[in-house]
Amino acid sequence: MVEKVDIKNRSGKMSAAPTPQNTPSSANNTTFGVKEPQFKTIDEGDEDLEAIDGRLDSLRNLTSQRISELPTSVQKRISSLKGLQKQYSSLELQFQRELFELEKTFAKKYGPLFERRRELVHGEKEPSEEEIKKGIPEGEEVSKALEGKNQKDQQMKGIPEFWLTAMKNVLSLSEMITPEDEKALRHLIDVRLVYMEKPGFQLQFEFEENPFFSNKVLTKSYYYLEETGASNVFMYGSAKGDEIQWRPNADLTIRTVVKKQRNKNTKQTRTVKVSEPRDSFFNFFSPPQMEDEEEENPGLDELLELDYQIGEDFKEKLIPRAVDWFTGEALEDYDEFGDLDVEDDDEDAESSSNENFSDSEDDSSENEDEDRTAHSKQNPAECRQQ
Rank of each mutant, 00 (worst) to 15 (best):
L225P: 04
E180L: 09
D339C: 01
S79V: 11
S231R: 12
D181P: 08
E141K: 10
I177F: 10
N265V: 15
L102W: 15
E92R: 12
G148K: 05
N169I: 02
K157R: 11
I67Y: 09
R77L: 13
D181A: 02
F213D: 00
K4I: 15
T327Q: 09
E147L: 11
G200N: 01
E293L: 10
E147R: 13
M176Y: 00
D6A: 07
S364N: 10
V142A: 10
E329S: 13
K133T: 15
W246T: 01
N215L: 11
S231G: 04
I52S: 11
W246E: 00
T23A: 05
A374H: 14
K168S: 00
G123C: 04
D346S: 10
D242M: 13
S68P: 10
S174H: 09
V142S: 06
E209Y: 05
E305S: 15
I254E: 03
E103H: 13
D46W: 11
R77W: 07
E291K: 14
K133Y: 14
S80K: 09
T269L: 00
V34N: 09
L91A: 15
M156L: 12
E124H: 09
P112S: 02
E227S: 14
Q204P: 02
E103W: 10
R255Y: 06
R321C: 13
I244R: 08
F282E: 00
F282C: 03
K240I: 12
R77T: 15
V323I: 12
D371G: 07
S89M: 09
S15D: 09
Q155Y: 09
V121Y: 02
G237R: 01
K125P: 00
T327Y: 07
E131Y: 10
P288V: 04
Q378I: 11
G299A: 11
E103I: 08
K8M: 06
L113H: 04
Q21W: 07
T373H: 07
I42G: 03
Y110K: 13
V257R: 04
A349F: 15
E101S: 11
E115Q: 15
R262H: 05
L70V: 07
E140P: 07
T165H: 05
E3H: 10
E115Y: 10
L59E: 02
I244A: 04
D46C: 12
K133S: 12
N356M: 11
P288F: 03
L56P: 01
S143E: 14
E294H: 08
D181E: 02
S90G: 14
Q289E: 14
A107D: 14
D153R: 08
K13G: 01
Q87K: 05
T178R: 11
R117I: 01
S358L: 13
K144H: 11
S353L: 13
E332T: 12
P211E: 03
V74Q: 10
D335M: 15
V191Y: 03
K149F: 12
E197Q: 12
R372M: 03
T253R: 15
V194M: 07
S280F: 09
M196Q: 14
E69R: 12
D181R: 00
S68V: 05
